[in-house]
Design a protein around this nucleic acid. Structure first.
Lengths: 203, 203
DNA sequence: GTCTATATGACGATAGAC
DNA sequence: GTCTATCGTCATATAGAC
């Protein structure tokens, strides 16, 4: 066995613990969170972080990457679980539901990602944009398929619709509190209903 | 004339210039923006800011307040311009259009507010929440009226709908670029169409 | 690998001249 | 009112012991 990626050394486990702590702290405090707070939660001293990460920015970048990756995996899995007879619109619906749940469903990474993207210094923002673009293109394919199938209202700008949807879904990390009012699943239902059918009762 | 509020001393003009500069810088760099950058743009040195504001937090708080105030005024004006025969749903539509335009339509304050609200330290967040709540209740009245008039789809959770809408609209400050693709007005149309009718072509 | 201790550098904030 | 100069604080990052 020489599969380095899969090997579980003490180091990789600690690194993971640090990342988990960082995701939680960033999701609570936003970008200005201090390394000492992250170290505290990981059960170590701030200086010790540097054995695992070269800099604060490296740590932030990794949390951001994992945030997108996590949502993407959940969304892709949900879409993949659909029967092959599912329509493009149903696939898009499953994606909206899954992404909303990935934000709200206690994924500190997804929440942190959604919360701190707005305050990134230029270099981190640039690095992050590549991942965003890749995930965005996955969504664009979903939109394009639905549009080609004639399942989208005429006049809909798919790019604007996609970005408006991301805004609505990602912002839930700021206000949604499980147990107060809606469950995560009910919130996802609301998002799907609103996004595909709108709030108005009259056509 | 002893109307202090309306008097235009040099001090109030400078104060205004600082606030404008701060709104721009915060809208570009997010919460971590430096006072020196703000001072630069206002044409002064960082230390001089303290003649006009007691602390960095005071300055941030004022920008936040003006951000909400500006959107609110634009929205209220748009709703007020409607004929008295307008339905509750039409009033809500006007609000969505106006709020979207207030974010995209080059209001640095609204953009800054939408952008940095996620990274506020606890005390600033608490202070800001009062303003948010007041503006939110204005919206809640619009929603309630529409619901009472039977113009909202049954099953819609108005609070969730409101917050999802805010997320979608405020997030536009992160991605929308006038001149590339849609105009601000077209974007507002998209937001209205999506929010009230959804993207799906089939009912 | 994690610690303590310290270097380094930023930034917010203050004091006093003008 | 704005400047220059400086203080104090705090966070990132490094060095070296364990």
């Amino acid at each position: 066995m020489v599969d380095v990626a899969a090997r579980e050394t003490k180091s990789t486990r600690t690194r993971q613990r640090i990342l988990d702590a960082a995701a939680e702290v960033f999701s609570e405090q936003g970008y200005p969170a201090r390394l000492s707070d992250i170290a505290d939660r990981a059960g170590m001293k701030a200086g010790s972080l540097y054995y695992h990460f070269d800099s604060r920015e490296d740590l932030v970048a990794e949390v951001l990457r994992l945030g997108i990756e996590g949502s993407w995996e959940q969304v892709a899995a949900a879409v993949g679980r659909l029967p092959s007879t599912a329509t493009p619109l149903q696939r898009l619906e499953a994606a909206v539901r899954a992404h909303t749940l990935s934000i709200v469903g206690r994924s500190a990474y997804a929440t942190a990602q959604a919360r701190i993207v707005g305050s990134l210094p230029p270099d981190l923002a640039r690095a992050h944009r590549k991942d965003q673009r890749a995930y965005g293109e996955y969504w664009r394919d979903l939109f394009d398929a639905a549009q080609r199938a004639g399942q989208l209202k005429s006049g809909v700008d798919t790019f604007a619709a996609q970005m408006l949807a991301f805004g609505a879904m990602n912002w839930t990390s700021e206000w949604f509190q499980a147990g107060r009012g809606l469950t995560p699943e009910q919130l996802a239902d609301q998002a799907v209903m609103l996004f595909f059918g709108g709030v108005a009762s009259l056509p």
